[in-house]
Structures are given as C-alpha cells and as structure tokens.
Design a protein around this nucleic acid. Structure first.
Ligand SMILES: NC(=O)c1ccc[n+]([C@@H]2O[C@H](COP(=O)([O-])OP(=O)(O)OC[C@H]3O[C@@H](n4cnc5c(N)ncnc54)[C@H](O)[C@@H]3O)[C@@H](O)[C@H]2O)c1
Ligand SMILES: NC(=O)c1ccc[n+]([C@@H]2O[C@H](COP(=O)([O-])OP(=O)(O)OC[C@H]3O[C@@H](n4cnc5c(N)ncnc54)[C@H](O)[C@@H]3O)[C@@H](O)[C@H]2O)c1
Lengths: 224, 224
DNA sequence: CGTATTTTGTGATTTGTTTCACATCAAAAT
DNA sequence: ATTTTGATGTGAAACAAATCACAAAATACG
C-alpha cells in the first residue's frame, strides 16, 4: 500500500532551526539572554512571530527578562531529541554520498552515519572513516545500530528499489537526494531534496525580480 | 544596506517543478496527454490543486481533452526561462563544490557551471572538466559569461565575505550551502539550503510520528 | 443535430498562518 | 510600597492557501 505522501518541513519548525543556530552563535559570543526582538532582528523574523513560534512549541520565557539562551537551547535540544545520538545509514557512495559522509556538521549535531552502502565493489574498497558495505549487510547494520533514518544518494533509477529495501528492514525516515518522488507507506517520513529544483528556482526568481524590479517581491516569494 | 531577506520557494512553484518532472517521464513513456486527475495522482496532489496551480501560472488546457504534454512542457519551459542557457559560477571546490560541479543534471536543465573558484592553490591544480580559478578572476568570468547566479559552497566562516564579493561583481541570485543566513540587499535572491536542518527535521518527524502513531500527521507536517 | 458526459477554470468557502493588540506579569524606579 | 516601564503570551483580526462546487466548454454518442 505504497503511496505518495510528500511532506515539507513546516515553516515554524524551519524558523526554530534558525533561532537555534543563531542562539548557538550568540552564546559563543558571550551573550546570555535574548529578547524576541533581538532574536527576530538577527534572523529576519518579526518578534511577534518568534513568540508565536515559541508558543507553538510551548517554549516559555521570563516576562520582561526575555529568554535565557542556555535554558532556551536545552529546551530546544529536548524538543529535537538531541540529548541522544541518532544513527544513520547512507546508501550510494558516489559523488554526493561521499561528500555527505565527510560532512562533519552532522556529527556535531549528534547525527552519526554509522555505515554506508553501495553495490559497486570499487566503492567498497574505498578507504574512508566510515565503512562501506555491500547491500546484503544492510539488515544486520540497521538492527545492530537501531537505525531509524537513512540517506538515499543513489541514481534516480535505483532510488525506489533502495527505498523499498530500507523500509523492509525497518527504516522509518528517509532524506532522498535522487530527483524522484519516492512512494512509501504513509507512516514513513520522506524528505525529498531536489537540488536542481532549488537552483532552478533561484534562476526563476532572479529573472522575474529583475523584470518586476522592486517592491512586488511578495508576488513571487513566500517569506519563511 | 544589507539585510536578511530570506525567501523560500513558493509551494505552488515547487509543485510546478514536480509536475514537470512527472510530465517528462510520462512523455518518455509515450503518453501524449494528461488530465489534472492523472497528473495529480502521479504527484500526490489533488486534481483541484493541479488546476489551481496551472491557473496561477496562466497555463491553459483543453476542456474535456485535458492537457497535451508537449504543449504543457513547452509552456513551462518558457515560464522557467529554459529556452536559453544559464551560466553559473561555483565558489568553493571542497567536498560539496566538487560533487555539485560534477552533477550532470544541472547541464541537462541548461544550467551550466562555466567556472569554479577557490582560494586553495591545490584545488586550482585539480584536473576537472570545469576550470578552477583564483578568486581574482571572478569579475572577469562573471562579465565574460554574463553570469547572474552563483553557488556558494565555502565554509560557514567565509560565506558572507564571498557573497559580498559576488554581489559586488554583479551576481543577482545565490544558492548557499553554508549553514548561515546570508545578509544581502533586498533585490538579491538567496536560497539557503541547509542539509543538516533537512536531515534533522526527518529525525524530528520520525520521533514525533512514532509517538503520535497514525492519522494526526497533519499536526507535524505541512503538505506540499 | 441535440443531448449526455467529461474535464477544465475559477469564484466561494474553508482551513491554515501571520500579524495585531493588549492583558499580564516581572523587574526597575521612585 | 507603589508606580512605571518593558517584555512576554495569546486570543482576535487580517491575510494567504487549499479545497469545494459548479458553470462553461469540448467531445462523444445516439
Ligand atoms: N552529485 C551531486 O552533486 C548531486 C546533486 C543533487 C542530487 N544528486 C543526486 O544524488 C544521487 C547520487 O548522485 P551522485 O552524483 O553521487 O551519483 P553517482 O553515480 O556518483 O553515485 C551513485 C552511487 O550509487 C551506487 N548505486 C547505484 N545503484 C545502487 C543500488 N541499487 N544500491 C546501492 N548503491 C547503488 C553507485 O554504485 C554509485 O556509487 C543521484 O540521484 C543524483 O541525481 C547528486
Ligand atoms: N560536505 C557536505 O556534504 C556538505 C553538506 C551540507 C553543507 N555543506 C556546506 O557546504 C560548504 C562547503 O562544505 P565542504 O564540505 O565542501 O567544505 P570543504 O572544506 O571541503 O570545502 C570548502 C572549500 O572552500 C574553499 N574556500 C574557503 N574559503 C574560501 C574563500 N574565502 N573563497 C573561496 N574559496 C574558499 C576551500 O579552499 C575549500 O576548497 C560548507 O559551508 C558546509 O557547511 C557541506
């Protein structure tokens, strides 16, 4: 009973990510507390929106005193389940897969790629920090590391087949870089990232903005 | 007068990309015409929404006869300015930059990376199809190839500085892979792609869906 | 040729999101 | 201790997006 259940990250959640990144930076700069005004200014969001977003996630501040950054960050950590580590597998060690496997920021955020998989024996011989396995070890690794989330970085043609296999072995969430809409059962979370579309949309907006020349941006964009 | 003007791709435009990819596939399979119902089914969108989207972009079909795929595709091509080529520059030939520079699908969609740039002399010596230049040739290349759009794939710390330089030399649109909100004048289009956030949001949704277990998806997601 | 059928295109309605406005509280000032 | 000030938190209002519903148009069929 596979079906297309596309989802996009809710804007309010995207903004929470934004706030967090900003808070981490401010904290490193020695700042201890923020107001919705400060945070809004820093992230290009109105203070009202910041407070509404916090309200949605039941994040509380101190009347008049604003928000204590450390407290805010630890509240966010528990919202995002960042207190514990998350094991991830990556399928497809081509250009994209290799690049992602080396990306240190995932680890910094407690997202560990514990193993990668590829059908190409040459890729399997690659020396790398993270092991590259054949597909037949998929189940073993997913079970051993209690992996719930996978990165799909295989060619378009193989993406659905790989996805089916991942789900069969217990994967619940997928971030997919292949330019296809994966069909999955409704309880599976899929985030389709299509970089060609992202780039092309920039071109589209550049052209239309140049024509429109100025204030009518709203017609073409949606604010985050 | 730099400021934060974040924009996200409008959902209706995202869906148009979706329709197009689907239409290309159907066309290759020999299908000649579609109905909003077919297309919706194929992309997980309601037929009403398909027609509303087409209406927004003034795409017309034939009452009763549906849409002729070829006609639809060529209308879309002109909407997306795909009739002409688009020259792009890429700054930062690290893991991500190299991967993107090899991505053939950009070229397939008439988006040509004409040159790449890096401060690292080692990267400049790299043999690759696309030339790697020092930053001081940026202006020359941008002018020569009439480049309007750039890909930023440098570390977080350098992203703003590189962006400023790109804009100074006439770039109007940027897709940014560094996890920072770039500050740009309001007439510049920026698409900030943050892959850590995308991955983390999958984890977030997986956890919350598992808890919610079933139909209340709507609470956590926004449909595309 | 006219009637039934099917699908588009778009106002009207509903649903969702952002902005506004202000009561509420906590701290600072007097 | 009381007033003033300044920020939060959240209903209400305004705005935006998605769904519904149906008239209009094109085709099929008797
Ligand atoms: N390269 C990029 O910058 C880029 C950008 C955006 C999207 N993408 C998408 O990401 C995906 C990967 O792109 P790439 O450039 O890394 O391609 P690639 O060809 O370099 O790598 C694909 C890898 O997947 C492996 N593979 C193929 N079928 C497999 C299967 N059934 N099971 C396991 N592994 C399999 C191949 O052996 C290869 O190593 C593609 O869908 C592409 O469209 C790539
Ligand atoms: N690697 C990934 O998979 C990945 C994923 C998501 C986001 N990103 C982001 O993309 C960016 C690049 O990541 P990466 O992994 O390729 O890093 P990297 O360190 O491999 O590459 C960065 C490149 O930028 C060059 N550079 C640095 N400063 C520069 C400057 N001022 N001008 C020109 N070039 C400069 C460096 O010489 C290097 O070649 C980072 O911001 C990173 O956070 C990377």
């Amino acid at each position: 009973m596979k079906q297309i259940t596309k989802y996009v990250i809710k804007n309010s959640l995207k903004r929470i990510f934004l706030y967090r990144a900003c808070l981490v930076r401010l904290r490193m700069m020695g700042v201890e507390r923020v107001f919705s005004y400060t945070l809004g200014n820093e992230t290009g969001v109105t203070p009202d929106q910041v407070r509404k977003d916090f309200s949605e996630f039941s994040i509380k501040g101190n009347k008049r005193g604003g928000y204590e950054i450390d407290e805010l960050l630890s509240t966010m950590e528990s919202i995002f389940h960042r207190n514990k580590d998350h094991n991830i597998v990556l399928v497809g060690m081509g250009n994209m897969g290799q690049s992602l496997s080396k990306y240190s920021r995932f680890v910094q955020r407690n997202m560990n790629i514990v193993a990668t998989f590829d059908i190409d024996p040459f890729k399997q011989k690659m020396r790398s920090d993270i092991p590259v396995y054949t597909m037949n070890r998929l189940k073993e690794i997913i079970d051993r590391f209690k992996v719930k989330v996978a990165i799909v970085a295989v060619p378009e043609i193989s993406a659905q087949e790989v996805t089916d296999e991942l789900i069969r072995h217990g994967i619940k969430g997928i971030i997919n870089f292949a330019p296809v809409l994966l069909k999955v059962p409704p309880e599976i979370v899929v985030n389709n990232v299509n970089l060609s579309d992202e780039l092309e949309s920039v071109i589209y907006y550049v052209h239309n903005l140049l024509k429109a020349d100025g204030q009518k941006n709203i017609e073409y964009y949606t604010r985050l």
